[in-house]
Design a binder for these strands. Structure first.
Lengths: 200, 200
DNA sequence: GTCTATAGAGAGATAGAC
DNA sequence: GTCTATCTCTCTATAGAC
């Protein structure tokens, strides 16, 4: 009974500390202190720092990469609907966990071989997803990579740079959170403009 | 004579190791080994790990944030020319140092108070730059933050995610480097489409 | 399951010989 | 300026009492 509570307290503390400081700067003592438990309990429940980190990392990779898959393969929605659904879903999801993209990208960059194998998007055939097939029909001359880079860049980049912008002594990025909220409706409009570009 | 060579050797080694592993995971012994010098020389020339890191970080922040300023304040270029010039400049600069954006964003996130004060963009009044004034004339109804987020997201995000994409067992992001190169000409076209959007 | 205590490795930094 | 040697601290992880 008490075991489950303690285990989950430690896991939640690890989520917070790892997300804030990254793997290398986090100590087992930081996790124990944040959880309010004795240091040795962290090893008792999770065996090693690498082990508990990989659990958190798997969760977070699923959250950022796994969540897009159902939308991409959905054969019942149009390209416009997919854009709307995915950007709204990402902005909702990441707004609750704003450091998620920077954390995941940064840790993968530092340890690509460790995390490549649990990459959720490997499970699907990207080029045969509904979203890519629809894009190729709409814009046959353009590499679909550009479409995904534009779409994900417009959606995710604001969160990656948010810390910077909020520290700037200027007014352009005031209220960054409400600006991001506005983007739920604006990104689909801009993406349609790009899709209708004469270069296609 | 030999002092300058040794100092620069250590600094170059520190650049490489810090960029690859980040501050926390880098050891003074890693830097010494990469430079091919004795461990104590690193402290002799640079006093502390924090000190040598801050030198590198200042350089890198100047590289990514300082480089855009002259283009933004240039009163002699049109908005379209600025977009073309900035995207080309960034793609050239970051292609030679692909981990630059992820490194800088990630280290600032982990230590915002340490690096906020040396943020190059604080030196200018963002809202009064030529590029923002031009945008406000062109799209008076849209918050200029959206414009900068779209533009920088489309330009910089591909580098942040490049490690991921190159590890995917799919073909959509093959040849990511030549895809990014194509974006030098495509981003200005897409940005013009967005600027001409009926929502403005 | 939870605690104290500590083993053992590794870190940043420096003293002092040359 | 450069080396060896080492101090001191902190880290992960575990042994063993309760």
């Amino acid at each position: 009974m008490t075991e489950i509570l303690t285990e989950e307290k430690i896991k939640e503390a690890a989520r917070i500390v790892f997300m804030e400081k990254g793997y290398a700067a986090t100590g087992m003592r930081d996790i124990a202190a944040k959880a309010g438990v004795n240091l040795s309990l962290v090893n008792y429940y999770f065996r090693s720092k690498r082990n508990i980190f990989n659990l958190i990392m798997t969760e977070k990779m699923q959250k950022i990469f796994g969540s897009i898959i159902p939308y991409m393969i959905d054969e019942t929605t149009s390209l416009e609907e997919k854009i709307k659904n995915i950007s709204t879903m990402y902005i909702n999801t990441i707004s609750e966990d704003p450091n998620l993209p920077l954390f995941v990208f940064s840790e993968i960059q530092k340890n690509p071989e460790e995390f490549a194998f649990l990459f959720p998007l490997k499970q699907i055939n990207f080029m045969e997803t509904s979203i890519i097939k629809q894009f190729k029909t709409r814009c046959p001359e353009i590499n679909p990579a550009h479409f995904m880079l534009n779409f994900l860049g417009m959606t995710i980049f604001p969160f990656i740079a948010a810390h910077l912008f909020s520290n700037m002594q200027t007014h352009i990025f005031d209220n960054i959170l409400s600006v991001i909220e506005e983007r739920k409706t604006l990104i689909p409009l801009w993406m349609n403009q790009i899709l209708d570009s004469p270069i296609n």
